[in-house]
Design a protein around this nucleic acid. Structure first.
Lengths: 168, 168
DNA sequence: AGTTTTATGTCAGTGTTGTTGACTTTCCAA
DNA sequence: TTGGAAAGTCAACAACACTGACATAAAACT
């Protein structure tokens, strides 16, 4: 990557439109690979990507409220509700009325929900692990750094909050 | 990133499920940021992401055939056709019957098509440039390496072919 | 106490984008 | 030359986003 040191010591990058376009296309193709395995599994059970996202973030933060999920997923409540309803009907997700605030619904994975989330997550992690292996540790660090810079600011907040609560 | 040297000299990575899950979420949030700007512009003109993808790859390889576009985009020809039809009706894309093989249609951007593609592309490149700037050159290198490893093999081929034909 | 706001859920309607199935035109090879 | 493969088109359907309107219950505010 072309680089130069400015007098102040800050690194300057000279990026051609062509180089940026490569990045854009890499992002497009990689995201397709990234979702390909879970998509196959979901299809098997008659679910879609939206179900996967819900399962993922409920699994990540059990007891999360519908509203919190909405702000993470960035969809309308009508859209999320359609997905949650089927997951609850199919007994993959359990919705419990809040104790402190009875308006809220706290969401949990059932045993079956946990099982499906595991299956999806295993496939996706395996792909990620493989990519990390091929690329090596410094590449992984850079990958994460660029991705974080590419997020919208409010999403970085969600991401960071989760990062802080976990072990990295 | 945790790392170790094996006797053979190959670097081994120890990745917890937690670390991999972070990568997965980063990918999810980043892709949303990545498409946010073009999505806003497309909405303004009444188009969707599928139109963007078509414009992008036609711009990248003018005169490409529908079939070639299909293999890159990974959708059915019926799905692509609907998008192409509106782009042709709206005079953003021109479809010329092949001279050598009259079954083929060669696709080109019109003046208007080029203009819209530029507008979309400018927005997306700006986001990418910003992310690259914040992350720095080594991070960018790593980013690209991991993305490439995450693609499906046949998509890597598409990606590499385009890489070789361009200037990186 | 009465009003407003918040959290959630629902119904109806619309648009984009994916799918499969059936069809035409064109090309090529046995 | 005929039959099959390839390229493209039309029609119908499904998933999943969206908006808008409305309902209910609980919390918060005045």
């Amino acid at each position: 990557m072309s680089e130069r040191q400015s007098p102040g010591g800050q690194s300057l990058l000279f990026l051609t439109d062509e180089q940026l376009r490569k990045g854009i296309e890499a992002m497009f193709f990689a995201y397709r690979g990234f979702t390909a395995d879970p998509d196959r599994i979901l299809n098997k059970y008659g679910y879609g990507r939206a179900h996967h996202r819900a399962l993922h973030f409920i699994s990540r933060a059990p007891g999360t409220t519908v509203n919190n999920l909405l702000s993470i997923l960035g969809v309308t409540k009508q859209s999320l509700n359609r997905v949650l309803r089927t997951l609850i009907e199919d007994e993959l997700v359990e919705s419990r009325v809040g104790t402190r605030d009875k308006r809220e619904r706290h969401l949990f994975l059932t045993e079956n929900g946990t099982a499906l989330e595991q299956e999806l997550s295993d496939a996706q992690r395996e792909r990620m692990r493989q990519a990390y292996r091929e690329a090596g540790p410094e590449a992984v660090q850079g990958f994460r750094t660029v991705l974080e810079a590419m997020m919208d600011t409010d999403m970085q907040r969600h991401f960071t909050r989760m990062k802080d609560s976990g072990h990295d």
